[in-house]
Design a binder for these strands. Structure first.
Lengths: 161, 161
DNA sequence: TATTGTTATACTCTATAACTATA
DNA sequence: TATAGTTATAGAGTATAACAATA
């Protein structure tokens, strides 16, 4: 009558937690006309002006075709500019507008509040472990091992099953 | 040139980690003709025979309409049965078939191996913190506070912003 | 009237192939 | 030839409204 059997799996809990986060952050960003993907793109562009689309796609780990509509949205809202690169006329350089910088500042605060809301009840240590664990999982998905080089042999799947 | 600014947010890391998990578990379940949602449904039904669809939808936190196709898929594969409830002829009782039980057993092992693969490099303690943290986030999304009743006042968002 | 399961539908996110214009 | 950006498209997952059968 419960999902106890599934709760042992990281993926099941993460799916449910991420769904909750997705809903909350979407609501938090709505007043700014942003969603998770446009916010993420704007945040990276804000920190790295003159970034190219393909570089941004790599950083955000999204496919180039899917980035196009995200940038269209940001450009239409006059939050970023797409300028032809002088040294490579195929490429665009992405930069935030003043308006984009201002909106980003507010949106970052809103997302920080959202984050605090969703992680309420977790200690700073637990939160740090959470973030590191998710980075580790992501790296494992890319087939990377950790840097320690002592236990992992690249074959087994032993840990705590 | 990086996503450092976003890495401070739990949601960003979780999105990327979940994407990695989703890909890996999908591949792990493919040989069994299952996907994450059909696996989850089968796992709950396997543990709670004669479960009703609406109860299953509640447990898995998915909308009733979306459960229909999932169960169609499991029924077509002869992994579960849908039997009219004797006491309420609107309702169906969901039970695993023998075949469903056998497949579930193998699929659980495959998912456990997937889980071990994705969490490789995490200690048992880190893994436990991860799972508890995600449950906490999910509960925060439902507007629940933790059971401690000392610091939370239901208004603020103070923690580690 | 309310509930169970269903149908239809729409929206978001993701993935791939193929195109254009440059290199 | 290969690369940057684009278009078109298809597939998941999720959400809501409305319906038939039954309570």
């Amino acid at each position: 009558m419960t999902d106890d059997a599934l709760r042992q799996f990281v993926g099941y809990g993460m799916k449910r937690a991420f769904h909750a986060i997705q809903q909350d952050v979407t609501a938090a960003l709505q007043p700014y006309g942003l969603r998770m993907l446009t916010f993420s793109a704007l945040a990276v562009i804000g920190q790295s002006p003159r970034l190219r689309q393909s570089a941004l796609a790599d950083i955000l780990a999204i496919e180039r075709p899917n980035l196009v509509l995200i940038l269209d949205e940001l450009e239409r809202a006059e939050l970023i500019t797409r300028d032809r690169a002088r040294d490579d006329r195929r490429a665009y350089e992405l930069s935030p507008t003043i308006r984009g910088r201002r909106l980003l500042e507010k949106a970052v605060a809103a997302v920080a509040a959202h984050d605090a809301r969703m992680t309420r009840g977790l200690s700073a240590e637990e939160r740090a472990v959470l973030i590191r664990a998710m980075a580790r999982i992501e790296a494992n998905g890319r087939g990377e091992d950790d840097g320690t080089g002592d236990l992992a042999d690249g074959r087994g799947a032993v840990s705590q099953a």
